[in-house]
Amino acid sequence: MITYIIRRVLYAIPILVGVNLLTFILFFVVNTPDDMARLHLGMKRVTPEAIEKWKADHGYDIPVAWNASAEGIQKISETIFFKKSVRLFVFDFGFADDGRNIGADIRERMWPSLAIAMPSLIVGLLVNITVAMLIAFFRASYIDTWGIIVAVGMMSISSLFYIIGGQFLLSKMFRLVPISGYDEGINAVKFLVLPVLVALVGGIGSGTRWYRSIFLEEIGKDYVRTARAKGLAELTVLFRHVLRNALVPILTGVVVVIPLLFMGSLVTESFFSIPGLGSYTIDAINSQDFGIVRAMVFLGSVLYIVGLILTDISYTWVDPRVRLR
């Protein structure tokens, strides 16, 4: 187990290097820092002096990958590649275009993200599994048929409409919850109800359909026949035997996203004005702050890899056949 984790962590290094190189190429090789400066200063009619000043202000006034004018190790370290990309490995994200410390911002904004994403995940999972279990229990009946039809219909609606519709109905027409915003501590609850509800309703279609097919696949297996031959009731068969086996494929999809919950959801957070990492990212995209986007890309890959490792570890809990070596 320990050796396995160590090996996985070691394996993560080349992947992160790859991610880093890729973003570096995207951000600094396809377009030079000059282009970036021009973009920020408002296109075309910009004086070279203004560009130089912008670059100096934001730390782009050094060579991209090789500093021939510097001495010794600084030939490498005094470059954009080193300062902007390699530093990410020690989670030094640098500064945003408006001068704020990205690392500090991330630490502060990940909690609201988590506060909204975690309940969404848990509630969604519970509801989806329950509904899918019910549909599977009534398989090949009208409940099953209509369940599927409703599920397919619901998953054909863009999540944007769920958000817009939810805000319109619950907040604007019935005035049950605030339309958007966020608060600290216990006060946050009233702001969280709507986003969580919207996430639940938006995900229930694809969720139940996916879990139903997992359950049905398990129900077709031989051990279920054995369990029935023992005389067990259908519900016992479903909950004791089928569910425990179905957890294996369900975990694959769920555990890997848990670390990514910190990243928040771009769309939800911006619609509901939640000061989390999702809206942070979307603001950065809209203001074209590459420093933040780069930091989020790197952070996202790290969390994804953590998710993969967690997935493997979680297998050992639910599936006795899996041993990590």
Binding site: D222, R225, T226, A229, R240, H241, R244, D319, P320
Partner: peptide, 17 residues
């Protein structure tokens, strides 16, 4: 009445002792 099946490999639930 009880029944045993052809495939012992798949007839037992793999995740229950």
């Amino acid at each position: 009445m009880s029944m045993i099946f052809q495939e012992p490999m798949t007839s037992l639930n793999p995740v229950i002792s």
